[in-house]
Nucleic acid binder design. Structure first.
Lengths: 229, 229
DNA sequence: TTGACAAAGTGTATTAAATACACTATACTC
DNA sequence: GAGTATAGTGTATTTAATACACTTTGTCAA
């Protein structure tokens, strides 16, 4: 028998863990709830899925509405559906994670009734619902995935130095990396396009700028190439 | 504003891609639909989520009801929520994949009104809804994950030979593996417990039997050990 | 009983990749 | 033009991956 039609209980939301990287830390974007339940608590941005939009479209829309963030890397993370994860009623949430670069995306400081702010991943306040678990899951995914797929570039500006790139890996993976070995490896992958530009406005020797080579990446991926760091 | 309450449209189902391994092939378990839409089509097992059960519990229940399969490895795969993936109404499905061993799990040949049958992954019929896409996603996940986490054991009987283990990797990854190098590597990981038993009822020299060492695995995983094949 | 068969089981040399490690070059500041 | 802060570079060593072929063992049937 086809029972699909029977299900009138669970409602569907999307929630999104937004990662950003500044000079110091890996950060996530939180909003402060303006309504009950958990009024005043920090939470990750999210909301209901409209009848005529896909899950991903809903995640992008909520992100834009609540934080002003758009044009970002977005990937589905996991779906959380514990019976009592929302104290009011049964809600299943499809969680996504997004990677943005803090330079190009200025975040709306406030929405209708709520604040939005960045928190270092080692300095996250108590969160509403089961959002702590969602954030944990997202961190694990990011740490796992950044090692073998070149997604970390999404956290950097379009043009970046090799040192910035290395710092990104160091902050996400929480381990130091040898500079010479790192450069040997990352340049050997041929995923970077060396630009004829250098840093500006630095009080020391300016570093060469690079850009992630999307086309090359797609070519190499076709061939089953391995991008492990 | 908290819009969570508004969402009265999308309904939630779970669907499950069940993998099994026989002497010849990697297989998946399909059921033949007894009702419209897609009456008579093959589909992966699944159904609605009850108000008082978690997503995983729902997946396990449906699996048992529709195919008799229980006590299996089950992991959430991806959530599919395209607006028109079901022709009748908006349905979001949380897909899981399961690994079973065909020896220990005899599958119910038929449920209430439907057949259940195994199909080689290279020989899958046209499927209902977007199930072809779900199966594809599951295959990609299995192929990716089996390389760096010891989940493939779930497809084998509790006691197995090194040759069976190697065949499992060869069938999933669709590539030949060198026997001596494979043994060197897998024994070097110390995930296998060598038993004092050998195969029975074979018309040639009997091979030694091994068992996956769950405790050792957990210990090594704690230490950030790498299980890449 | 023995010869044919089928799969089990085993070691080494070569190549490639990962790691460890420290100094010189350059551009700016004062 | 001396000081300083970061950029940029090469080699030797260790470790892991790969390539490769024969001997052993047990069963079966003549």
């Amino acid at each position: 028998m086809d029972d699909r039609i029977k299900c009138k209980q669970a409602h569907v939301t999307v929630d999104c863990v937004v990662f950003g990287l500044d000079e110091q830390d890996l950060k996530i974007l939180l909003i402060q709830r303006g309504y009950e339940p958990f009024k005043g608590s920090w939470a990750i941005p999210g909301g209901f899925v409209n009848a005529d939009e896909s899950l991903e479209a809903a995640a992008l829309r909520e992100l834009k509405e609540e934080t002003g963030v758009q044009d970002v890397f977005l990937e589905q993370l996991y779906t959380f559906g514990d019976v009592h994860r929302d104290p009011r009623r049964r809600i299943v949430t499809v969680a996504y994670y997004a990677l943005v670069n803090l330079r190009d995306h200025t975040i709306k400081a406030a929405t209708d009734a709520s604040n939005a702010a960045w928190f270092g991943v080692d300095d996250i306040p108590k969160l509403a619902f089961d959002h702590a678990r969602i954030v944990e899951t997202a961190l694990r995914r990011l740490r796992g995935k950044v090692r073998y797929e070149p997604i970390g570039f999404e956290l950097l500006p379009e043009k970046f130095t090799l040192t910035q790139l290395q710092r990104m890996y160091e902050k996400i993976l929480e381990q130091d990396i040898d500079k010479r070995n790192f450069r040997k490896k990352i340049l050997g992958m041929e995923l970077l396009k060396e630009l004829d530009e250098v840093q500006v406005d630095v009080a020391h020797r300016a570093a060469r700028l690079y850009r992630f080579d999307e086309k090359k990446y797609r070519q190499l991926r076709e061939k089953g190439f391995n991008f492990e760091i």
